[in-house]
């Protein structure tokens, strides 16, 4: 049995419905390229000076320079940020959710580790 399943990526509209163009040449197919083959990047935005970078989402890009520009266009259009970090998703090592028990639960009954027994002066700001 030869069943071919063709996955359509964003913007790869089949037939001649692909707009944005009067030319049939403009269709980008997964076989010839397009964002479907681009690696995934995680995006971190610093919303203002003094705050830390926060994870805001992910996007596709061919390389780091394009990832920064895509992040600028996708995530900072409404003045969300003053600084952008991107890292290719494959370089992030994540903890295994199945190990949550041994990793996190032992901390549950050790409240003395919380810095809640003294008062922070207001001037300290973001802690």
């Amino acid at each position: 049995m030869n069943i071919q399943i063709r996955k359509y990526y964003y913007g790869d509209i089949p037939e001649d419905n692909a707009g944005g163009s009067e030319s049939k040449e403009s269709k980008v197919s997964p076989a010839t390229g397009g964002g479907g083959n681009w690696p995934l990047w995680e995006v971190f935005i610093r919303s203002k000076q003094g705050l830390d970078h926060k994870h805001v989402g992910s996007l596709h890009a061919a390389d780091a320079a394009m990832a920064i520009e895509n992040a600028r266009d996708v995530y900072t259009r409404r003045q969300e940020g003053v600084s952008i970090w991107v890292v290719e998703s494959k370089f992030i090592t994540a903890s295994n959710p199945e190990e949550a028990g041994e990793l996190y639960e032992p901390a549950a009954d050790k409240i003395y580790r919380h810095p809640t027994f003294y008062e922070l002066p207001d001037e300290v700001g973001h802690m």
């Binding site: 990526y9 964003y10 913007g11 790869d12 509209i13 692909a18 707009g19 944005g20 163009s21 980008v28 397009g34 964002g35 479907g36 681009w38 996007l59 596709h60 890009a61 520009e69 895509n70 266009d73 996708v74 259009r77």
Partner: peptide, 18 residues
Amino acid sequence: AEWCGHGPVLEQDIAITN
């Protein structure tokens, strides 16, 4: 703006419409 919704990838669709 004619590219709106038809960009080659989502990110570039947003870039060109920006």
